[in-house]
Design a protein around this nucleic acid. Structure first.
Lengths: 206, 206
DNA sequence: TGGAAAGTTGACCGGTCAGTCAACGCGAAG
DNA sequence: CTTCGCGTTGACTGACCGGTCAACTTTCCA
C-alpha cells in the first residue's frame, strides 16, 4: 500500500483526539485505529507517544498562525484594533472547533502544558518556546500601539504581553471546564485592559 | 491496626502527588504506597479514583480559603487593597508549595479541570461550582470597591470577576509550564487592571 | 460478653498501556 | 533484473492500570 500520508494522518488524528479529550486518555492504539494505521507504522515515524505530541504541537501552531493570527493582523486598522480582532478570531475558532469536536476544547497548548510539563521535558520546552513566540507577537503589537499613540509611551509592553498571554490561556481553560464557548467571546476582548497601567489601587499602593 | 486517619492520609497524599505531577500520571497503587495504605482499604473509603479526586478538590479549597483568602481579607484596608493582598497571598502560597513539592504546581483546580473536565462529569461539575464560588468572592470584593468609591459606579463587576478568575488560572498555568514561581508574583497583581473599563481601543470601538 | 459494623489485608482480575520485532511488499535506482 | 531501503503488518511483550473479593481483625455498643 505505502500510503504517502500515513504520518500526516497520525498527526491530524492525534491533534483532534487530544484536543477533544486529553493526552492521557487517548492512547497510541486509539490514535492508530482512528487513523487506520497499524501500530508498527506508528513507531516507524515516531519514537514515542511524546514525540508525536511535539509534532502535534507544531502543527497546531502553524495552523493557528495561518487561520487566526494572520487574518487578525490583516483585518485590524490599528495595532489595538488588530489585538481586538485577534480576540474575536480566537472566539470564532473556538466556536468552529466546538462544532467540529463536540466539546469546548480549550487551548491545545495549555492542555498539553498541564498534562505534560511536569512529566516530559521535551514537550515542556517546546511549549515554552512556543509561548515565548506568542508573547513576542503580542508585544510587537503593543509596541506598535505605543508608537501609534494608542498606548502611553511609558507602557511596559513586556509585562502587558505576558499578562495578556496568561489571560488568554486562562479564558480558554475556564471555557473548557464550563463547556461553554460563549465565555470566550464575552471575556477575551477584556484582555485589552491588561495593557492599561494604573488602576486606583495600583496608584494607592505607589 | 485500624488507624483512624487512613482516609485522611489518602486525601493528603493524593493531593500532594497530583498537584506535583498530574492526575493521570499518579495511580491508585502509587497513592496507596505513599500513604502506606493497602488497596483494599482505599476502595473501602472511595468507590473510585475519581471519587477521591472530588474529595481532594474539596480539601484543596477549604485549605486555600483558610490559608490564603481569609488572611488577605483581614490584611487589606480597603476592598481593592484586599484584592491586591489576595494576589500576593497566592504568590506566597505558590512559593511555599514550590519548595514543598519541588516543582511549580500551578492551580490544583485548573490542573484537574484540564485533565478531567472532558472525561468525568462529576469532577467537572464540582469544579464548576467551585469556580462559581471563587468568582462570587471576587465579585463581592469588586462590589464593595464600587460602594467604597474605589471603582466607578457603572463597573460591570460580574464580567470583571469572571475575567480576574480566568486570569488567575492562566497565570498559574503559565508559571507551571515555565516552572518559574516568580511569574506569579510579577504578573498576578496586574489582575486589578481587569476591573477598570474603557481602554483606548474599547472607546474607539464604541 | 457477644455480635454486628467498621476497617484491614493481600491475592487476584481482565483489560489496556506504550513499545518491540521479524517478516514482508513494493517502488525506485543501478 | 536485481538489489536496496522505506514503509507496512500483526502478533507479541511485560508492566501496570483501576477495581474486586473473601477472609480476617479491631472497635464499638448493647
Amino acid at each position: 500500500m505505502a500510503h504517502r500520508d500515513t504520518q500526516e494522518r497520525l498527526i491530524q488524528t492525534a491533534a483532534g483526539l487530544w484536543h477533544a479529550r486529553s493526552y492521557a486518555d487517548v492512547g497510541v492504539n486509539e490514535i492508530c485505529e482512528a487513523a487506520d494505521v497499524r501500530k508498527g507504522s506508528f513507531y516507524h515515524f515516531f519514537a514515542s507517544k511524546q514525540e508525536l505530541a511535539v509534532a502535534v504541537i507544531d502543527r497546531h501552531w502553524s495552523e493557528a498562525y495561518e487561520n487566526v493570527v494572520m487574518p487578525a493582523l490583516a483585518a485590524g486598522a490599528t495595532p489595538m484594533a488588530q489585538l481586538q480582532e485577534l480576540t474575536v478570531g480566537i472566539a470564532d475558532e473556538v466556536d468552529r472547533l466546538t462544532d467540529e469536536l463536540g466539546v469546548v476544547p480549550g487551548c491545545p497548548f495549555g492542555n498539553l502544558a498541564v498534562e505534560l510539563s511536569t512529566i516530559d521535558g521535551a514537550v515542556r520546552e517546546r511549549l515554552e518556546r512556543l509561548f515565548e513566540s506568542q508573547k513576542e507577537l503580542l508585544r510587537d503589537l503593543l509596541e506598535r500601539a505605543v508608537a501609534a499613540g494608542e498606548l502611553p509611551d511609558a507602557t511596559d509592553t513586556a509585562d502587558a504581553a505576558r499578562a495578556m498571554h496568561a489571560y488568554i490561556e486562562g479564558v480558554l481553560l475556564v471555557s473548557k471546564n464550563a463547556n461553554d464557548a460563549s465565555i470566550v467571546r464575552r471575556l477575551l476582548p477584556l484582555a485589552l485592559r491588561l495593557a492599561v497601567e494604573g488602576t486606583p489601587a495600583e496608584a494607592a499602593r505607589v
